[in-house]
Design a protein around this nucleic acid. Structure first.
Ligand SMILES: [Mn+2]
Ligand SMILES: [Mn+2]
Ligand SMILES: [Zn+2]
Ligand SMILES: [Zn+2]
Lengths: 137, 137
DNA sequence: TCCTTTACAAATAAAAATTATCGTAAGGAA
DNA sequence: TTCCTTACGATAATTTTTATTTGTAAAGGA
């Protein structure tokens, strides 16, 4: 429902405007989605929406931690609602992005790698590229 | 030396032009570098170079497997000479990208994760974001 | 309530990044 | 060297992203 997104926005000190809740609704529905596609989708229910409003709000919501950017080799970045740390399985044929939990051991390993390089780790981003079940045939 | 890059290009069925070897020389020197910076650097030794030539060749060399794209949260992609699989430590303050080997256990873990999702894994991309030694102070 | 302030969205405009076109130049096989 | 093919440079054209301006509407205080 719409109040869910209103809550999320307010929790991050952002006003819950119609445009923002619509953007969030579309992102949630797609899971992971690129800017242009958000514009396309939101436009269906709100024809007068400006593309600049999308850009402005995506940037703002990433800054505030409501959204996460998922940069991908050979494509434009996709965005998702920020959630618990996880990894991505990305199909190089159809472009689908699937979430998977990161297992604890792997997480600890990366901590060590960072430490031994004098690096203070903030966050991880693991993408696995390949073919999804459907595209393998 | 310059013949080194000529070899690399020919090994991938690409003509060894002056522009291409210069681009590779700059990428090697920086380790990881964005398009605009490549242009800036190559222009110093070859003032008449066209930016379109950079784009065309980067795209081509990525396609042919000479280069690898490194997509990064909040920045434009950087490019590097393709090499053995490794991970990246990325400083969110100064932007530096550092290479680290991926340890074998972690690699095997990701294989399993992919498998159990019916996904045929092709390649991994792990970025660790944080502060480098210099930027921690 | 009325006034003042602030935040947003929309509509451009502007700038930056990327791709396409085409005539000329250079690489490389023979 | 000669010839064929491919790549480069010089734009032009698109696409993507950011900045400005203006009009409203919500928020807060007197
Ligand atoms: Mn995700
Ligand atoms: Mn690297
Ligand atoms: Zn697929
Ligand atoms: Zn740093």
């Amino acid at each position: 429902m719409t109040t869910e997104y209103a809550q999320l926005l307010k929790a991050h000190a952002l006003k819950a405007t119609f445009q923002r809740t619509q953007i969030l609704e579309v992102i949630e529905r797609y899971g992971h989605i690129a800017i242009e596609k958000i514009y396309e989708e939101v436009s269906k229910v709100h024809a007068s929406l400006s593309l600049a409003t999308i850009y402005k709000n995506i940037l703002l919501m990433v800054e505030k931690g409501v959204l996460t950017e998922v940069p991908i080799i050979g494509q434009k970045s996709k965005y998702e609602i920020a959630k618990e740390e996880h990894i991505h399985l990305i199909c190089t044929s159809c472009g689908t992005v699937m979430d998977k939990m990161l297992d604890v051991d792997t997480a600890q390993d990366t901590e060590k790698v960072a430490e031994t390089s004098g690096f203070s780790l903030d966050h991880r981003q693991l993408n696995l590229y390949g073919l999804c079940e459907a595209c393998r045939g």
